[in-house]
Nucleic acid binder design. Structure first.
Length: 594
RNA sequence: GGGGUCGUAGUUCAGUUGGUUAGAACGCCUGCCUGUCACGCAGGAGGUCGCCGGUUCGAGUCCGGUCGGUCCCGCCA
């Protein structure tokens, strides 16, 4: 860079700087070479400034500028001048001025980029990830990272004000039963033993409460070796926190404060608090989901009692076998085509629904429907009344087990809303979902498993049922849902050894196994563990929603592909045999022949 | 583990019923151009149609497999 020193960013200069001598550094976004005058759009993290090489003003530097190409890195010194009459670019923050160059220094050239860096051009994901450092130069991607930084700073400021301590926890820890598949790390020093990467710092943050830290938080990487989705990858970031001597109300207040500060810092939005709340039971009843999107209606309506003993055999048998019949009234949607209905039927089939019954309510109130003939006038009237059906409405029904009915109608509801354009992207609907069940029965494992995790406290009033009717016990867990996405969850924890042992027993974790895997926790609970609880937010998902993106890859600097690889570094990769033997691993695969 | 979808020039895509030499735009290269801002004009280069196999006189096109991207189901306390 020689004696040149950057004086401003590419977004700084305006009419106040006219006639000043400045130096800019950055990347050549575009050149417009008129043979005579040459314009370069110079870009950096902050913005863009037009720089001008004028042969009448400086022949030497103009001649030198002819070689400049996209993504060359340059330093330019010159004078800030007002653009001529009528040449102002109102789309550009620095559009009132330009830099008339007196000195050009080429800091680095660039080969032709593998894809254009223009914002509006779609490039395949594999190419973007292979050249992620170019992809991140695009303003939209850079903005996402900048926004993520602001979000982290805002929540740190808020939590610091609330007397939290930011404390790090180990990344090399031990594998514990329950939950997702662990990433394992073999120990060289301890042959045959393994560390696991944390699925969350759950037990460590509880131990920090036992340690009297009182309020802890951490922005922390977590690891789960499961298959990927648009909003899920194996390493992800949690905003993790834990507090002592609190109730649910304290957690809600803190979490709402975090969201408030975060949305103010990123979107400049003033969120209304407190957020609405809904029990798990109500959410399942009205939306068929424990993370309902409340930006639109299309609620599920139960018809199980209305169609009991009706003339339609499919519905009748399902009810007799203890299943459910539920419906959705798509108001004013009777105009949907047969193809639309076939598509929707295929859509719910993905979620196990064997069929999707539909009824178009005609202007005279008559039913146009393949199943109309199976019902008496009275039965039809009862169903119509329950669904508040009016002429022009389209009614959907699914009859099956409770799980299939709820899942398929919940997904149908979302798909309908998308197709009908009922979703407002600029609305942010938060919802606390409370009173989750503590346990659910796993038919494969033939035992109960924890809905949240094994350290979640049961409610006082249900505790007595732990042994007699474990499936009925409610927990002191809560989820925070934003626009139908679970963005966080937590619970009040068990802080007494006896209760923890009873829950382990309800989970069919044998006392010997509990002692082996969780001895340290049980011991800590005997040594003055305070009542405590906490919550963790999925930062990637939160940023995805705030940035208005469809995948968390767009808010992660170096994300993984759906096959959990990194096209940039080509991870995961093979290792030398010696590395394995040092770790006391004996591979049975053949080494690649050279 | 399963299902959908995509893969053609550097990039984004088109390519008819299987039929001559595979096209467009942008980008790139050369030349011209003194007020553009997606500058303009003229010319040019650039292709193992992801890969392997099959059907066929003939395959970018049809079939099977495989690899890669992506979305979903299962999975994700």
């Amino acid at each position: 860079m020689g004696e040149l020193k950057r004086s401003h960013s590419c977004n700084d200069l305006g009419v106040d700087h006219i006639d000043q001598e400045v130096t800019l550094m950055g990347w050549v976004l575009r050149r417009r070479d008129h043979g005579g005058v040459i314009f370069i759009d110079l870009r950096d993290r902050w913005g863009m400034t037009q720089v001008v090489f004028n042969p009448e003003f400086n022949t030497e530097v103009h001649a030198k500028a002819h070689v400049l190409r996209s993504e060359w890195v340059i330093a330019v010194r010159g004078k800030v001048i007002r653009r001529p009459e009528g040449m102002v670019n109102n789309n550009l923050h620095t559009g009132e001025i330009e830099l008339l160059v007196t000195e050009l220094r080429i800091l680095n050239s660039s080969i032709t980029p593998p894809f254009p860096l223009d914002e509006d051009i779609e490039v395949s994901d594999s190419l973007r990830l292979q050249y992620r450092y170019l992809d991140l130069r695009r303003p939209g991607m850079a903005d996402n990272l900048i926004m993520r930084h602001k979000a982290c700073q805002a929540l740190r400021a808020f939590l610091n004000d609330e007397n939290f301590l930011e404390i790090e926890t180990p990344v090399l820890t031990r594998s514990t039963p329950e939950g997702a598949r662990d990433y394992l790390v073999p120990s060289r020093v301890n042959p045959g033993k393994f560390y696991a990467l944390p699925q969350s710092p759950q037990l460590f943050k509880q131990l920090l409460m036992v340690a009297g830290m009182d309020r802890y938080y951490q922005i922390v990487k977590c690891f789960r070796d499961e298959d990927l989705r648009a909003d899920r990858q194996p390493e992800f970031t949690q905003v993790d926190m834990e507090l002592s001597f609190i109730t649910e109300e304290d957690i809600y207040r803190i979490a709402e404060g975090v969201m408030k500060s975060l949305f103010a810092a990123t979107r400049g939005l003033e969120l209304k608090t407190p957020f609405p709340r809904m029990t798990y039971a109500e959410a399942m009843e009205r939306y068929g989901s424990d993370k309902p999107d409340t930006r639109f209606g299309l609620e599920l309506i139960s018809l199980t009692d209305v169609v009991r003993g009706c003339g339609f055999q499919v519905f009748r048998t399902v009810v007799e076998k203890g299943g459910l019949v539920q419906g959705i009234n798509a108001k004013g949607c009777a105009h949907l085509s047969r193809k639309d209905l076939d598509d929707l039927t295929a859509y719910v089939a993905n979620y196990g629904a064997k069929g999707l019954a539909w009824v178009k309510v005609k202007e005279d109130g008559e039913w146009q429907s393949p199943i109309a003939k199976f019902f008496t006038d009275q039965e039809r009237a009862g169903m119509a009344a329950t669904l508040a059906a009016q002429p022009g409405d389209l009614l959907f029904f699914v009859a099956d087990t409770a799980t299939i009915v709820r899942t398929s109608l919940a997904e149908l509801r979302l798909e309908l809303a998308r197709r009908l354009g009922l979703i407002d992207k600029n609305t942010f609907n938060f919802l606390w979902v409370t009173d989750f069940p503590l346990l659910e029965y796993d038919h494969d494992q033939k035992r109960h498993t924890a809905v949240h995790h094994p350290f979640t406290a049961p409610t006082e009033e249900d505790m007595a049922m732990l042994e007699s009717d474990p499936g009925k016990v409610r927990s002191r867990a809560y989820d925070l849902v934003l626009n139908g996405t679970e963005i966080g969850g937590g619970s009040l924890r068990i802080h007494q050894k006896e209760v923890q042992n009873r829950v382990f027993k309800a989970l069919s974790i044998a006392p010997e196994e509990a002692a082996d895997k969780f001895a340290f926790l049980l011991k800590a609970l005997e040594l003055g563990a305070p009542p405590h609880g906490g919550i963790a937010f999925g930062l990637d998902r939160l940023m995805m929603i705030i940035a208005g993106r469809d995948t968390i890859r767009d808010v992660i600097a170096f994300p993984k592909t759906q096959k959990a690889t990194c096209p940039l570094t080509d991870a995961p990769a093979g290792v030398a045999r010696k590395q394995l033997t040092e770790l006391h691993l004996r591979p049975d695969w053949q080494e690649e022949k050279k």
